[in-house]
Design a protein around this nucleic acid. Structure first.
Length: 165
DNA sequence: CAAGAGATCATCT
DNA sequence: GATGATCTCTTGA
């Protein structure tokens, strides 16, 4: 789990042919393992979830509710399905709050699925050296996963505090 | 201000 | 044929 919230404070960069846009990651959610009923991989290994069983650092983009894309990154070793959902980023001091909005703003769609985000030409992460201490990260329950029962209560949403102002 | 519903489609059964 | 890791607008107090 420590590895997961380390992603907070790093930058997401999107190159769409019209110049690069970068945003600081403010909030993420973790989806961990085949036991986590909120994790797509808990429903079995299918064509869609196959990428979750692969190596870390790969993007997992899918469409939800027929209209919004969600951007995730695989975080664990092969054969252990886990990913983090990028929920909020800050671009030029402006907060883009919500995974659907974020993908809309960045023009992220399923053509960006399964990309290696440790380096890339379209979508990748950058460490800009900003240190985030443990105290700056708050934990909360995940959103929109009430169907997952007890798993819905896990404090696996991580948010950078004191960022809005 | 809070709560509720609709939009809309890839994926799985 | 059902169902979402959401967002925005509308309604009603």
């Amino acid at each position: 789990m420590v590895l997961l919230n380390c992603r907070i404070g790093k930058y997401l960069v999107r190159e769409n042919g019209d110049g690069a846009v970068a945003g600081k990651i403010i909030e993420v959610e973790a989806y961990v393992g085949g036991e986590d009923r909120a994790c797509h991989a808990s429903k079995g290994r299918t064509a869609r979830t196959e990428v979750l069983f692969g190596p870390p650092g790969i993007s997992y983009v899918y469409l939800i509710y027929g209209m919004y894309h969600m951007l995730n990154v695989v975080t664990e070793r092969p054969e252990f399905p886990a990913a983090v959902l990028i929920r909020a980023i800050e671009v030029d001091g402006e907060l883009i709050d919500g995974p659907g909005k974020l993908c809309r703003e960045f023009g992220i769609n399923r053509s960006l699925n399964r990309l290696d985000m440790t380096h890339g030409s379209q979508l990748w992460f950058e460490d800009r050296g900003e240190r985030v201490s443990r105290k700056q990260v708050g934990t909360f329950p995940r959103i929109g996963v009430d169907y997952a029962g007890a798993w819905a209560k896990k404090p696996w949403r991580f948010r950078l505090l004191d960022s809005g102002a």
